[in-house]
Amino acid sequence: MIKFASLLLIVIGLYGILSTRNVIKILVGINVMEIGINIFIIAIGFVNGGAAPILSVDNPGSLLKFVDPVAQALVLTSIVIGLGVTALGLVFARKIHKKHGTYDLSEIGGES
């Protein structure tokens, strides 16, 4: 269920990028996509009834069913990278605003 919701999130994010000319909103769309893909990765690695892949006193051995630790490692990295890209995107957005006085790409015209 949540798998499909996360895939839907990616589609919504794409729609967000397509439906606007505003750079901030494009970045919001990208973030929605990223959240979607992150949840999807975790959902793929999820085993129903599995425990968190953390060794502790409560789950001492490998006898227990773990959810996939690789997927979680991926998502951790992916979140951090997403932050970096978003920050850089905002820097560019500020530069656009500074140069053209607007966040709207359609008002900038054919800057090539």
């Binding site: 990028i17 890209v85 995107g89 957005a93 530069k95 790409l105």
Partner: peptide
């Protein structure tokens, strides 16, 4: 040309997703 860099970044992000 910040708009072009932004364009690049958006395309790159979509690609990475």
């Amino acid at each position: 040309k910040p708009a072009q860099s932004f364009n690049y970044l958006v395309i790159g992000s979509v690609g990475s997703v």
